[in-house]
């Protein structure tokens, strides 16, 4: 049975993370460090160790998701814990820093970590919205089969148009050769505006101007409309996949950056200071 990574095992990971946050926050509020609320106190070391372990464990999701035979903890369980512990990490590292930030390697590690978490939040949003949209949009078809169907429609349209007139064939041929399913990067990321493929609309307009009322024209018109619908579906499919995936291009490299910064941070604190 499908289980959402958000509500996995009756929000077990959420509950654990809330307890963790409460414990860290309680320690921060109750404990009175000897001199300052920064990483250099016993509380800072506790928070630092906890944050470091969390960061390494969270990054291990990249390894776990490639181990298909591992069934001790389902991947969905890992993802669920990844999300809630990742959110808790924001509090842990912020309190660990004591809000003492500056232009140095320690703050760089903090900045990377925060950026990783923020991109993760977007990922959480994207994964809770777009898979359903993709499924609805595709209506049981794959993108490749949609392309194949458009090809079939193009071939049928060319054959039909040849029976009508050379001019009609030329117009449909132009539509076949010029159809492009392309939108700008910004549209793919932010806009919900539908793609208006010019070549198809020109062809539809031309067909409807014929006023012949013949069955061939009607059939051609119907094929072009079907093509227009499929082109829209493919464009939305590309758009949804784009939104589902782009954040990983920040999340993953920033994770690597955060881990390296963490290493330098630990080395500097233990050996350089």
């Amino acid at each position: 049975m499908h289980q959402s990574f958000i509500s996995y095992k009756n929000f077990k990971s959420l509950k654990g993370s809330v307890v963790l946050c409460a414990a860290v926050l309680g320690l921060y509020v109750v404990a009175e460090p000897s001199a300052t609320s920064a990483g250099g106190t016993w509380l800072g070391y506790v928070g630092g160790c906890l944050g470091g372990v969390l960061m390494v464990w969270l990054a291990c999701l990249g390894i776990r998701k490639r181990k298909y035979k591992n069934t001790e903890l389902l991947a969905v369980g890992w993802v669920s814990t990844h999300i809630y512990l990742g959110t808790a990490l924001l509090l842990v590292v912020s309190l660990h820093s004591g809000f003492h930030l500056g232009l140095n390697i320690h703050s760089l590690a903090y900045a990377f970590t925060v950026m990783v978490i923020l991109t993760g939040f977007y990922g959480l949003y994207a994964y809770s919205i777009y898979p359903d949209k993709i499924t609805l949009n595709r209506d049981g078809m794959s993108r490749d089969s949609m392309f194949a169907e458009i090809t079939e429609i193009d071939e049928k349209s060319l054959a039909l148009s040849e029976k009508i007139s050379p001019e009609m064939f030329a117009k449909i041929s132009e539509n076949v050769e010029e159809t492009k399913i392309k939108t700008s990067l910004l549209t793919r990321l932010f806009s919900d505006r539908s793609l208006k493929e010019g070549a198809i609309y020109k062809a539809i307009d031309f067909v409807r101007e014929q006023h012949s009322g013949s069955e061939l024209i009607k059939e051609l018109d119907s094929l072009l409309q079907e093509k227009e619908s499929l082109v829209g579906k493919i464009e939305r499919d590309i758009r949804y996949h784009f939104r589902l995936g782009w954040w990983l291009y920040l999340h993953v490299p920033l994770t690597v950056g955060a881990l390296l910064s963490l290493l330098i941070h630990v080395y500097v604190v233990l050996f350089y200071w």
């Binding site: 492009k180 399913i181 392309k182 995936g245």
Partner: peptide, 11 residues
Amino acid sequence: RLIDDSSGDIE
């Protein structure tokens, strides 16, 4: 031809 003239995935 149609695939080549379309937006690809982010990859």
